[in-house]
Computed example of a mutant assay.
Amino acid sequence: MQFVFDLDGTICFKGRPISEPLVLAIDKLIAAGHDVIFASARPIRDMMPVVHEKYRGRLWIGGNGSLASGGGAAEHVHAFPAEQLEQILQLIRQHEATYLIDSDWDYAYTGAADHPILNNLDTLGLARNVALESLERIVKVLILTASDIESLNEKLLALDVVVHRHGNERILDISPQNVHKWTALQKAGVQPKQFVAFGNDANDISMFREALHSVRIGEHPGLGEYASDSIPLEGDYESDIVRKIEELAVQYAAVR
């Protein structure tokens, strides 16, 4: 069976790497013959600090599906079309927005010097913060602040792009249309109802819909109707996640 894991808020917490107990649980999954895939909103560059290097040969989906890698560097890249990107940039200028804009590796950042997002941004120093016009293939746009964030959100939705709002954050997470975790998994050969998904947020809905079994971490309401199981972030929740992984490893042991 293929097991697909989101990262932040699902198997890694507070920006820290996947903990040793969860790494051991994943190792046991692999030893039992299951395949493991990581699918994150982070670009590949920012997945590397939190996912153990032993997993770099496995499939990584980054940027909510705009990037895919089998060995630690972006191999599949789905960027914004040039005309659509120019419309987005025009709206950014109109709304005096600050942003984090990602290419397949480098990025452009105009947010505050103490913004919390910097805690997870290129912590290994692998990329460069460059001028926006220097980025060739833009795959993801995060709007951090704007003069009118709600108006900007409405105008972005009219451009036929994918916009996620994460939890209670006012950040707008923008991806090209028809680019999400499930489309990237499909391109990699993953079949509907042939995988188990673990996730915690709106950007996991696309793969939860297609999973044979799905595990919601936390209480995001949009995931609830698609979740087979839910694990609240209460008490020793990492141990609860480990137990669920072990349980499902046995439940789907005969499914390859």
Results as ranks from 00 to 15, higher is better:
Lys193Pro: 01
Ala41Asn: 03
Ser151Val: 13
Leu24Thr: 15
His220Gly: 02
Gly199Gln: 10
Pro192Trp: 07
Thr110Ser: 07
Arg165Val: 14
Arg209Asp: 09
Lys181Asp: 04
Gln177Phe: 13
Leu7Met: 07
Asp229Lys: 14
Ile18Trp: 02
Arg42Cys: 08
Pro116Leu: 09
Ala131Arg: 10
Gln84Val: 15
Val161Phe: 02
Phe5Arg: 08
Phe13Thr: 05
Arg165Asp: 14
Asp122His: 09
Tyr252Gly: 02
Ala249Ser: 06
Leu156Val: 12
His95Asn: 08
Leu91Cys: 09
Phe208His: 07
Ala254Thr: 09
Val215Trp: 01
Arg165Phe: 15
Gln177Arg: 11
Leu248Glu: 00
Ser206Asn: 07
Leu172Arg: 04
Tyr107Ala: 02
Val255Tyr: 07
Gly222Gln: 02
Gly235Phe: 11
Asp106Gly: 06
Tyr99Lys: 02
Val162Gln: 09
Glu154Thr: 15
Asp8Tyr: 07
Gly111Trp: 12
Gly218Pro: 00
Gln84Ser: 15
Asn178Tyr: 12
Leu233Gly: 11
Tyr237His: 12
Leu24Gly: 14
Pro49Gln: 05
Val77Pro: 00
Arg58Tyr: 14
Glu219Leu: 12
Arg165Thr: 15
Gly125Lys: 04
Glu96Thr: 12
Ser134Leu: 05
Leu248Lys: 04
Ile11Leu: 11
Thr10Ala: 14
Ala253Tyr: 01
Ser19Asn: 08
Ala197Glu: 00
Ala184Cys: 12
Lys193Ile: 06
Arg93Leu: 15
Ala79Met: 04
Val77Asp: 01
Ala31Tyr: 11
Gln2Ile: 15
Gly62Asn: 03
Ile138Lys: 03
Ala254Asn: 11
Leu126Met: 06
Gly15Val: 06
Gly111Lys: 07
Ile18Leu: 06
Ala73Leu: 11
Arg45Met: 03
Val242Gly: 09
Lys28Arg: 13
Val215Ile: 10
Tyr252His: 00
Ile171Val: 11
Gly111Glu: 08
His213Leu: 09
